[in-house]
């Protein structure tokens, strides 16, 4: 159980409130908390992205707003977006057009529930946590298709079609890459996966088995494609499709897409740190003073790696993208699953 539910139970006492009320209250609090964290992430990461892009391209990036390295630029941009007029195109399907951003955001927000932030803080400690994360994040694909179709705009439709094809395909290597770890843990519970990696950097799954080491890179590549970021940002290619599936969106609705993009970026980074990089355990055994902070730092480092890749590599073509997924990554991930199993049997770890 998580610490917050215990706190709420403690404040109101077991006699004043039924268990159901405690559960509902803690669910509402946790959902709000996760949403706030998500919004903060989006703010910090947009600023970070612009600074990283600037550094890689030998320029400064935002420097003026808020004096110190333009730290308030993201806040100003967010306020500007919220103040924009909310436009729904005359020929759009109004219901789907307004529902799509909510569905996309819901997909990423739901997935955040199963992230184990620290030993005693998981919003929803599910037996099938990892599996649940993959399942609910697939809801976002329907949202993207809906957005592209309802906009009644050919760029948006192309962007949505590309996005859906890409995300459905890359879900497979993404999930396959996590299977060797699940084989070691014998559980899909996210906390169990982290607990199994106790005892320093050598016990992280990344270094336990050469096949998992390869699977980590498969996961990393697939996660870039899954978040629709460069070099796999086919759904949004500015030079061909204006902005892809969210071409017609403005104001708050656009902010939802924007928010979910960065929330997904942080989500896949957190999953990488949870599944392969030891989650909340610090690299040196016996120094686990701030588990949640360790976990977040690992996640942010993975985000930085993502940004580095995005601003360094040129965009691939659509057919190259599909080739990479179906003919390279899926066979390699499958080999990793089989190989990791054989390695476990050989080393007697099974």
């Amino acid at each position: 159980m998580n610490i917050l539910t215990e706190m709420i139970r403690g404040w109101f006492g077991p006699d004043k409130m039924s268990d159901q009320m405690v559960l509902i209250l803690s669910a509402v609090t946790l959902a709000t908390l996760m949403f706030v964290v998500m919004a903060l992430c989006a703010l910090v990461f947009t600023w970070m992205e612009r600074k990283v892009a600037g550094f890689i391209q030998s320029r400064y990036g935002p420097m003026r707003t808020g004096r110190w390295h333009g730290w308030a630029q993201a806040v100003a941009d967010m306020l500007k977006i919220l103040g924009k007029e909310d436009i729904i195109p005359a020929e759009a399907n109004r219901f789907f057009f307004s529902f799509a951003p909510i569905l996309v955001l819901l997909g990423s927000l739901l997935a955040w529930a199963a992230i184990p932030w620290s030993p005693n803080f998981v919003s929803a400690d599910l037996d099938l946590g990892l599996f649940y994360i993959f399942a609910v994040s697939s809801l976002a694909i329907i949202g993207i298709l809906m957005a592209g179709w309802a906009s009644n705009n050919k760029w948006a439709l192309y962007g949505a079609a590309r996005g859906a094809a890409q995300m459905v395909s890359y879900e497979i290597p993404l999930a396959l890459a996590c299977i060797p770890v699940v084989m070691y843990t014998g559980s899909l519970n996210t906390s169990d996966i982290v607990i199994a990696q106790q005892g320093g950097v050598l016990n992280w799954f990344l270094f336990r088995n050469p096949f998992i080491f390869v699977a980590f890179f498969m996961y990393f590549i697939a996660s870039i494609a899954e978040t629709n970021r460069g070099p796999f940002d086919m759904p949004e290619t500015e030079s061909e499709l204006v902005a892809g599936y969210h071409t017609e969106y403005t104001g708050m609705r656009f902010a939802f897409f924007f928010l979910s993009e960065y929330a997904n970026l942080f989500l896949v980074s957190l999953i990488a740190s949870m599944v392969f990089l030891g989650g909340w355990w610090s690299p040196i055994p016996g120094t686990d003073f701030a588990p949640a902070l360790t976990f977040i730092i690992k996640g942010v480092l993975m985000v930085l790696l993502n940004m580095w890749v995005r601003w360094t590599l040129p965009r691939v073509r659509v057919d190259q993208l599909m080739y990479l997924c179906w003919k390279v990554m899926i066979p390699v991930s499958l080999t990793c699953v089989v190989g990791a199993g054989l390695w476990m049997m050989w080393r007697g770890q099974a």
Binding site: S138, A161, A164, A165
Partner: peptide
């Protein structure tokens, strides 16, 4: 039956329906 529930979302609501929608839209 958590496994069946998650499977239902992942396979039916996720993958299969996305392919359906994809074909219909195209």
């Amino acid at each position: 039956a958590p496994f069946l529930a998650v499977m239902q979302v992942l396979v039916y609501a996720g993958a299969i329906m996305v392919l359906f929608l994809y074909v219909i839209m195209m």
